[in-house]
Design a protein around this nucleic acid. Structure first.
Length: 624
RNA sequence: GCCAAUGUAGCUCAGUGGCAGAGCAACGGUUUCGUAAACCGUAGGUCGUCGGUUCGACCCCGACCAUUGGCUCCA
């Protein structure tokens, strides 16, 4: 086992555990107690509280499956019922090492095999730091605490799932079974949590996407991670693109279009190849050139040209910048494109629309001078806030990732002064604009500081939706310059920004955020006209309403079938159609339509013209 | 990629070592109806793929493919 010295939490930081975290951490011990009783040779590693509960990593021949949960939970309940005290014992390092050798740590009794992970952990505790055990009944575990006073203080708990994890997250280390559970102060809170989980499942974008016919993933013919947008999903894509295009046009962006592939030279120049990004790119296409060449070719390699599917748009945009001589008068130059990128995400990383291999990015690159930077960067942030408002996002945070000077030339391009300079510029903009941000050291992109935008959906789930990066390195690698006032060539700064992220992830997020109940402007089927009966004059009237709506670019469908009106409404409600217009003979005579809104019920009969005008206006304003 | 679970009709899901099932959707017919499902009928499947065990496999075993849950929030 490797004896590294990873960044550890200090004991002081540990003591800050909340009451709930103490309950969960204690519950992890109780679970270990139960597992030790059932399988005495279990070897435990780490068992911390986590965001929604706790886990404990265990090495055990027996594969624990959810069928074992009842058994384990029964033992846990016995321990809780016994109301054992959590007793803290401070020991010497020698004592800890001895007990670990005897297999006494994270165990109910001494064992023939040493407590190997605990032994490793003890050896990694820095000299001088106190070492402690926590005992409950016969179970002794190496633990810094803190815990609740007694096992009986664990109000309510449940085991949830099993996963695997490497010891210390390193694939060179043994693979452990990670058993997850959750615990709360009382049964009411536990049940509320599971209700929330159920609610999240109902909003799962994969489920709603299937039900509403938004997208399909055809792994057999198209490939995993390569979603197909069905007509209803494509309608949302089109609306988002329209929003972006209008907004960006008004903000002085110009649109460009670039191919989906480029030569290897492009990515060698950008620095993504040969190594940095190679794993995330699809393997190259190799073109045999000069097939008619008859002269002997000594260098086989020289006849092959490699093309790569683009994993990002920036290099193409850089070449557009380079396509013409640029003057300081051309700056800032804002190049925008809904570019399609291909990234080879590992198979285990794929997840519905949220993690895919083909993605359409709301991309743009802003080339500017250092003097223009603050204003441009601020304008980008304003754009984010504008979008948040449209989508009703109230909670967000911008994670500002900076570099680590120790890793210059390795993880980060070696430009010490530029790093500090641009980071200061970004920090100033964030401070002055009053945007909610946190600073995270050592997580920047390799070519400059980065901002990740995290948002919270309506039910409080967190999503990283977009990134925003400053790039002072790659324009230089591409030799991009503009002629400045003083008649010298200078390298521009470049801001990479994608406020709407990718269609795939953003729509995945929106599906959950709205639970599929999109506002009118985004709804895949905005209006459905339902006739009461299928008599010809009614159908003709209904068709004329559909036609008039479509003439106004409203996505409207008609249901003229012989089903009963209740049945038609049921179907339209289930399809989450935003507005239903019910038409019976009374409406026909009066020139009315009866309006029913999804989830809101009957709104009564109104004049046809008024209703259509209102629908058109609501879409135009993108009302929420 | 690694570990585990899952894979049965378009969708949601039952099921058994001995003829493959339901609801919804689809299709045909009957019904002409005012705000969350009228009725009858028809059709639909090499039970993820390939191999093995067996008289016989959707079921048991193995490999592969795919999906899902996870893969440092560290005693």
């Amino acid at each position: 086992m490797e004896n590294q010295n990873p960044e550890r939490k200090t004991l002081d930081e540990r003591q800050k555990m909340t009451d709930l975290e103490r309950i969960r951490h204690s519950c992890a011990h109780v679970m270990a107690t139960a597992i030790s009783k059932l399988w005495p040779d279990a070897q435990f590693a780490a068992g911390p509280p986590v965001e929604n509960g706790f886990y404990y990593d265990v090495e055990l021949e027996h594969r624990i499956s959810p069928e074992d949960f009842a058994k384990i939970e029964a033992e846990m309940k016995a321990v809780i019922k016994a109301n054992q005290t959590f007793e803290k014992v401070v020991v010497t390092r020698d004592q800890a090492l001895q007990d670990a050798q005897k297999g006494r740590l994270a165990a109910l009794a001494e064992r023939s095999a040493p407590s190997k992970f605990k032994l490793d952990i003890v050896q990694n505790i820095p000299e001088g730091e106190p070492i402690s055990y926590y005992k409950n009944g016969d179970f002794i575990d190496l633990c810094a605490g803190p815990h609740v006073m007694r096992t009986g203080n664990i109000g309510a708990f449940r085991l949830t799932h099993v996963a695997s994890a490497y010891y210390k997250g390193d694939e060179k280390n043994p693979q452990l079974q990670r058993i997850y559970g959750t615990a709360f102060k009382n049964k009411t809170e536990l049940e509320a949590y599971f209700t929330m989980v159920e609610e999240a499942k109902k909003r799962d974008h994969r489920k709603i996407g299937q039900e509403m016919g938004l997208f399909a993933i055809d792994t057999e013919f198209v490939g995993p991670g390569l979603p197909l947008w069905l007509p209803k999903g494509a309608a949302i894509v089109e609306e988002l693109e329209r929003l972006a295009k209008e907004t960006e046009f008004a903000a002085g962006y110009v649109r460009v279009k670039t191919p989906h592939i480029a030569k290897e030279k492009m990515y060698l120049t950008s620095g993504h190849l040969p190594k940095l990004y190679a794993d995330a790119m699809f393997p190259p296409m190799e073109l045999q050139e000069d097939k008619t060449e008859v002269a002997p070719v000594t260098d086989h390699e020289s006849r092959i040209t490699r093309y790569y599917l683009k994993a990002m748009n920036c290099p193409h945009h850089h070449r557009i910048f380079a396509a013409e001589p640029r003057s300081y008068r051309d700056l800032p130059l804002r190049l925008a494109e809904y570019g399609t990128n291909y990234r080879y995400e590992q198979s285990g990383e794929l997840f519905g629309l949220m993690r895919v291999r083909s993605l359409n990015m709301n991309d743009a690159h802003i080339y500017c001078s250092p003097e223009q930077f603050a204003q441009e960067f601020n304008a980008v942030n304003e754009l984010y806030l504008k979008y948040f408002k449209i989508f009703g996002l109230e909670k967000y945070v911008m994670r500002f990732s900076t570099h680590d000077p120790k890793r210059l030339g390795e993880k980060y391009v070696h430009e010490p002064e530029l790093w500090i300079q641009t980071e200061n510029m970004v920090r100033d903009v964030l401070k002055n604009s009053g945007i909610n941000y946190v600073e995270v050291p050592n997580e920047a992109a390799f070519y400059g500081p980065k901002i990740d935008v995290q948002v919270w959906s309506a039910i409080g789930r967190e999503f990283t939706i977009a990134t925003n990066q400053v790039d002072f390195a790659v324009p230089k690698r591409f030799g991009l310059v503009y002629r400045d006032r003083d008649n010298t060539d200078k390298t521009p700064l470049c801001i990479h920004r994608a406020p709407l992220g990718t269609h795939e992830r953003f729509i995945g997020f929106l599906i959950e955020h709205y639970a599929g109940n999109f506002p009118l402007w985004l709804a895949p089927e905005q209006v459905r006209v339902l006739t009461i009966g299928d008599e010809q004059p009614l159908v003709d009237y209904a068709k004329s309403v559909v036609q008039e709506l479509r003439a106004n670019m409203v996505r409207a469908e008609g249901d003229y079938s012989t089903d009963k009106i209740n049945g038609k409404i049921q179907q339209a409600e289930q399809a989450k159609v935003h507005t239903m217009l019910v038409i019976g003979s009374r409406d026909l005579e009066a020139g009315n339509v009866s309006v029913r809104l999804h989830g809101k019920g009957n709104q009564g009969a109104k004049p046809k013209g008024d209703v259509i005008a209102n629908i058109v206006q609501s879409i135009k304003e993108r009302r929420s």
